[in-house]
Design a protein around this nucleic acid. Structure first.
Lengths: 349, 349
DNA sequence: CTTGCATATGACAACGTTGTCCAGGCTCTA
DNA sequence: TAGAGCCTGGACAACGTTGTCATATGCAAG
């Protein structure tokens, strides 16, 4: 073994444990650095015999190319970032997976993190990802001001927002048709004879919640019904408060005969409340959930396609990177009403 | 503006879009490269006045430190990799989130990917993460031979396996007590008078499935009952086959009076089948799932704590990195029986 | 005015890889 | 056998950052 090899081994001893580098491999195989690089990358111009020697040295040393260095040299990291609200939320699992599949198809890795619905944390995460020089960023916004990303966009970081629109910045956005979905859901209740329909949803400062509320109002107005304040409960999302809100709507002299639930978690709590009440009350929920069909009655929902959201966003991202895409666009994906029973209950007399 | 600045801007034009570097900032601020580095990293020894000038240049150019280069220089990437089976699976959401939280507490980012239960893809992913020089790796094994990771372990990549043990390699493992949980679940059925108890689960080559089967057998043997082959259905996991298996067990002259379901998906399908049958049959499922309590009757389950699995694994990982940890260990976390009704149904006469 | 010292700043190498370019040896043809 | 052309292989710079070390500046003390 040439002298350089030993020296180099020693020099690298404290870094990354002590991973061998191409230099070490080259020394051991008795070839030049670049030849090793060629073998590792399958570039042409290496004799089978030389290649064999290099390969042997690689195996013997347990060498693995350092992609960090490679990235520094090449300028592209082949990785994209995903900032979402909560990895543990069943809605984001399929979305995240869809993004991953598209990334994989493009040879990219996925780095993701949860903002926990905190705008500061969203920003911190997004910027950390930019510092890692991800090629692109898929963001499910927690905040409503994304001007902090402007320098990054200008610098060429491909960016797509999903599920909620970007704030104060011009960028690609992929959304569900929250307005249309809610309108359809409420119209479905109206078609089954309901007029007094309750709405329980999140704070209207959240875009999806506002849109769904708007759809609710539109459907009732289309039917010529005047919406009463007591029918709506906004900014209510934790089980306790949803429960109280539902019970209030169902009590009183003139109770609602149906409830439209503004999201997943609300729907589930309302199901619990209705199960305890004797008077049958119709229910339609925004967002599908597992086992909704197994409940008695099955829960009628407006389903969004989370995987499609993720896939569409990621595909747009890579088209930005290809240069195929120019102007930012706003894409709305349709929702689908799934009737399972709870939405077809007629109004109690 | 000094001449160098313009030249540098031009040279960098095609890389990372055209992100400014410390060199560009230095040129613009009229200071040395290292001074910029000092300011960016909050190192001491910079006059307030100089700092102001540098900060100004940073803002004007929209500079953000390139962490890839930083990583190359420093040798630690402050990121860990997570290889799991399927991000979209509700079981892995909380696990993944727990790992992320621990990583965040240690200032690390999380890169994750799905193996889709394919050993080759698991290996490909794990090695890709090693090439990125993640500091550590949390792996939910798809395959049962992990010798391919040996060079990486030797090179100092901290590694913890979760949910299933590592194959042919000595490493940290964090598991649920699959054997004990299954035994408890079946014992629960036995305590309610059942003897003829069916088991539907995954292929025994999957460690968790094998352990649960072992627990099932142990409980019945403890009760002095001879297990009959017709009670067990192994390697059955897709809805169609689970359905057929369940129906077979429930038919015939001497049907089972209770079923123990080996995992989540099996449980759900069995619930459907039982709902169609008139004779009441008891059911206990391994793994909790959302809304299990809302069904009629509520589904009794053996719950594992996915978040605890993830947290424990990640914490061990960082203790490996600290050097606090020496010998690999196998940790088993307890499971919990949650009685909700379906497991307390007495045997039909 | 010189010496000594602390403090602010910059020049330079190094991290591990890839792209560019050149050299040496070979084959082929005239 | 010489010249052209191809193939193999290596030297060197560069990617953007940080660590080391040297220098310049200012000020106090002799």
């Amino acid at each position: 073994m040439p002298e350089t090899a030993r020296r180099s081994d020693h020099l690298n001893a404290t870094r990354y444990g002590n991973r061998p580098t191409m230099k070490d491999v080259a020394a051991r195989a008795g070839v030049g650095l670049k030849t090793v690089s060629r073998v590792v990358n399958g570039e042409p111009g290496v004799t089978p015999e030389t290649e064999r020697r290099v390969q042997e040295a690689i195996d013997a040393l347990g060498f693995r190319r350092n992609d960090s260095a490679r990235v520094l040299r090449k300028g592209r990291t082949a990785s994209i970032g995903l900032v979402l609200e909560d990895l543990a939320d069943p809605f984001y699992g399929p979305l995240s997976r869809a993004v991953e599949e598209v990334a994989r198809a493009h040879g990219a890795l996925l780095i993701n993190g949860s903002s926990a619905e905190d705008p500061d944390r969203e920003q911190e995460l997004a910027l950390a990802l930019c510092a890692r020089r991800v090629d692109g960023l898929v963001v499910i916004p927690a905040g409503d001001d994304h001007r902090y990303l402007e320098p990054e966009l200008k610098a060429g970081v491909a960016t797509v927002f999903v599920d909620r629109p970007a704030g104060r910045i011009d960028a690609d956005v992929v959304l569900s048709d929250n307005f249309g979905g809610a309108r359809d859901g409420v119209a479905h209740l109206i078609a089954h004879g309901h007029r007094r329909i309750g709405f329980i949803g999140d704070m209207p400062r959240i875009h999806t919640a506002a849109e769904r509320l708007r759809g609710y109002r539109a459907a009732l107005e289309d039917a010529g019904t005047q919406v009463e304040d007591s029918w709506m409960s906004l900014g209510v999302t934790d089980p306790q408060r949803v429960r109280r809100a539902a019970e209030e709507m169902l009590a009183g002299p003139d109770p609602v005969t149906a409830i439209f639930a503004g999201n997943n978690r609300v729907t589930v709590t309302v199901v619990r409340v209705l199960a305890e009440h004797s008077r049958p009350t119709a229910l339609v929920g925004f967002d599908d959930f597992e086992l909704a069909d197994l409940l008695q009655p099955g829960v009628t929902v407006i389903a969004q396609d989370a995987a499609a959201l993720g896939r569409t966003a990621a595909e747009r991202l890579f088209r930005q990177l290809d240069g195929t895409l120019i102007a930012p666009e706003r894409i709305e994906l349709p929702t689908r009403l799934i009737a399972r029973g709870s939405g077809e209950v007629p109004p109690a007399v």
